[in-house]
């Protein structure tokens, strides 16, 4: 089948391949938007890829005061990992070091899932015996004394086993500036999709990788087929018009969230058009044999 073209943007006849993951979500609130964001940004730092960070995490949505349990501005943060144990460990480390420590913060469960992960029920030990348990309306909270008052933290949050990680597409453009404009438009559009995050810096990865490498111990290495400097040297996937490729990697609460995010992102890139943004959209896969979830680009078109 020949490649499609929508609004002048070529769509590769390929698919993104994604994997099942474990995910959880929490709601972080603070006395104002700035500090809710600060706690959320800090706890999702160094969480771009499970390859080196143990988890993938980002802010799913900013919540207005009217949508949080305590009536203060907040953020919903999602965390993804390959296994329940690692997810639990990452959740506690990150909330313990980055949210508990952040001025005025409080933390609530942000997902109802098939199982529970410990949150306040583990962090309460910071209270050193002065922590207070409160059950209010079927929810269990821990109040932990801290230097600006109390850190209120829900005892548990939910875990979902339906999460999907690694949904992706490539934005290919004539210059890195145009690729960035297109990728930013995609990230902004995906930001509005509930239940999906883009964990890389600003939602964008420029070092899309292949599995393994020629050096021993490398789990992932350069994806030379999409590196413009190696065009002509290796078997390249890039035509002469492309000088920059950026990848958007998407993790979602479930299959639908990833598909919705891919659609939203691709729509934004297509609408921008080739003059300002990308000339071509592709996707990363491993031949379709490794991942449980397949997202054909032609099904994701606006």
């Amino acid at each position: 089948m020949p490649d499609l073209s929508v609004n002048g943007v070529t769509i590769d006849d390929t698919f993104a391949e994604a994997f099942g993951m474990r995910a959880t979500a929490i709601i972080i609130t603070a006395s104002n938007r700035k500090w809710a964001r600060q706690a959320a940004t800090t706890m999702t730092g160094f969480a771009t890829s499970v390859i080196g960070c143990g988890c993938e995490a980002a802010i799913d949505a900013e919540l207005p005061a009217s949508a949080t349990p305590d009536g203060r501005p907040g953020c919903r943060v999602m965390i993804f990992a390959m296994g329940t144990e690692e997810l639990q460990k990452q959740l506690l480390n990150r909330v313990g070091q980055c949210v508990l420590t952040s001025p005025g913060s409080a933390c609530f469960g942000g997902l109802e899932g098939s199982a529970e992960l410990k949150l306040g029920s583990a962090l309460r030990y910071f209270g050193d015996g002065w922590q207070i348990s409160k059950k209010i309306g079927g929810r269990h909270f821990w109040r932990i004394p801290v230097m600006d008052g109390e850190f209120l933290c829900e005892a548990t949050t939910g875990l979902t086993k339906d999460a999907v990680g690694g949904g992706n597409f490539f934005v290919m453009a004539e210059s890195s500036a145009k690729a960035l404009v297109a990728a930013e438009a995609a990230v902004a559009a995906i930001g509005k999709v509930p239940g999906a995050i883009v964990p890389f810096p600003g939602g964008i990865a420029r070092s899309g990788s292949k599995i393994g490498g020629k050096y021993k111990g490398m789990v992932a290495s350069a994806n030379e087929a999409y590196a413009p400097t190696l065009r002509g040297v290796v078997r390249s996937e890039l035509g002469p018009d492309i000088n920059a490729v950026l990848e958007i990697v998407i993790d979602g609460e479930n299959n639908d969230a990833v598909a919705a995010a891919m659609k939203a992102g691709i729509k934004a890139v297509v609408e921008l058009g080739p003059k300002q943004g990308a000339v071509r959209i592709g996707a990363g896969n491993y031949g379709g044999k490794l991942g449980k979830f397949i997202y054909s680009l032609k099904d994701m078109l606006p």
């Binding site: 609130t29 006395s31 349990p69 305590d70 009536g71 203060r72 005025g104 409080a106 409160k134 209010i136 309306g137 909270f141 109040r143 600006d148 008052g149 109390e150 209120l152």
Partner: peptide, 17 residues
Amino acid sequence: APDSVFATIIDRYLIAE
């Protein structure tokens, strides 16, 4: 009289109930 998220939570619960 430090800030108390617990106070807000219980206030909201009492009103919601």
